[in-house]
Simulated scan of single mutants.
Amino acid sequence: MSHDTAQTQTESFVQRSVLVTGGSKGIGRAIAADLLRAGHKVAATYRSGDVPEGVLGVQCDITDPEQVEAAFKAVEDAHGPVEILVANAGITKDGLLMRMSDEDWEAVLDTNLTGTFRVVKRAVRPMMKLKHGRIVLVSSVVALMGSAGQVNYSSSKAGLVGMARSVARELGSRGITCNVVAPGFIETDMTAVLDEDVIKGYQQRIPTGRLGSTDDIAAAVRYLTSDAAGYVTGAVLPVDGGLGMGH
């Protein structure tokens, strides 16, 4: 019986056109590679570097509306209309509030929040015609917990929660879901440069006692983008080892 069930699940898999923003490194790269392994046609935007083998790489700065439009056209020409969008591209410009410049505030909000708005807006019209779509916004545990020195970053990531829930309400009747994944402390190039004492401090605060891996995030995204998650929308899924619990 279990064999039959597995066979049915395999047979019911539908290959879809996927776009992951910020797919050259860290979490975005892992998500793109994972969805490719799952059998989808995957494209990923990047500003520098490269994307995983087998993924269609599209150079794009999401702060530029013309580049966003060109990226979507390139993906549509190669793979058809985007049916799964994972909005992952983001930057940090950390600093204490009293010393944070307007430029550092604006740069982070323009990429993380406004850039995400641009790609979501461009993705939804074809999804509405198809009457199917999966949108996942990659936020952060600090969106709800806050983080000293990250007023700009945490604000931008909190904004994604409001965005996703509004999109979920607008487009739910069209077969489109919009959810948020909120990663905690994940082992990436960004965290590799941190002091050992800082990392140990985090490990002590995380109930699972370890940092997360990019694969942990990719697994959550794979579920939320699957056909099986059609009744999940407007959700915030923390993947943080319990660090933010309830926040």
Rank of each mutant, 00 (worst) to 15 (best):
A74F: 03
D197G: 09
D102R: 13
L160M: 11
T45N: 07
G133R: 10
V82Y: 04
V51N: 03
E76A: 12
L36A: 10
D215S: 14
V58F: 01
P183G: 08
D50Y: 08
R37E: 12
T177F: 10
A32G: 06
M127L: 06
K73N: 14
F13Y: 14
L113A: 05
L160A: 02
S48Q: 10
V221N: 01
N152H: 13
A220F: 00
D94P: 02
T177K: 08
I199W: 02
Y231N: 10
M145T: 15
A158S: 14
S155T: 15
I186S: 08
D102A: 15
V138S: 00
A229P: 00
N179H: 04
V55P: 01
V86S: 07
Q9G: 03
D34T: 15
G230A: 11
A107R: 11
H40E: 03
V18A: 01
D110F: 03
M127S: 04
D102F: 14
G242F: 02
Y153C: 00
L160R: 02
L96M: 15
T5S: 13
I84Y: 06
D102L: 15
N152E: 08
A78E: 11
V167S: 08
F117S: 07
H247Y: 13
P238N: 03
I62R: 05
A32V: 09
L194C: 00
D215G: 10
D4Y: 10
N112R: 11
L36E: 07
W105H: 01
A229Q: 00
